[in-house]
């Protein structure tokens, strides 16, 4: 088996990539993808810690990831619905142009 920190570093790199994308891209959908990547990086951490933990038979990491996948699916659905609604209103998905609070 590989040492634990290999997986943790991969997960950290994935998190940083997602963060960079979410902070720098102008398109709202790409920003949402960045957030999904960060969530997935956290999931990889959970699985790695579960596998290398002291009580893998307790299944804590697996359970957390299963629920996290469920929450991520809900998040993606609502987030994309919001983006579509905003697009209908402003005719753009550029995050820098959606800056008025007046609706």
């Amino acid at each position: 088996m590989l040492p634990l920190h290999y997986y943790l570093i991969v997960s950290a790199a994935l998190f940083a990539i997602g963060l960079a994308g979410a902070l720098t891209r102008r398109n709202a959908i790409i920003a949402l993808i960045g957030i999904e990547l960060m969530l997935n990086a956290a999931n990889l951490n959970f699985i790695a810690f579960w596998r290398y933990g002291s009580r893998p038979e307790a299944l804590t990491g697996v359970m957390f990831v299963i629920f996290s996948i469920g929450v991520a699916a809900a998040e993606a659905a609502v987030g994309l619905a919001l983006i579509i609604a905003i697009y209908r209103h402003y005719k753009t998905t550029n995050l820098d142009e959606i800056d008025s609070l007046k609706g």
């Binding site: 943790l8 950290a12 790199a13 998190f15 940083a16 990539i17 963060l19 960079a20 902070l23 720098t24 891209r25 102008r26 398109n27 550029n94 995050l95 820098d96």
Partner: peptide, 22 residues
Amino acid sequence: QAILSPSWGVGIVGALLVFGAI
């Protein structure tokens, strides 16, 4: 148009800092 927002440098540096810290 450019695909990156104007403050992209801050975003990249911030992400690299986070990566380094982790």
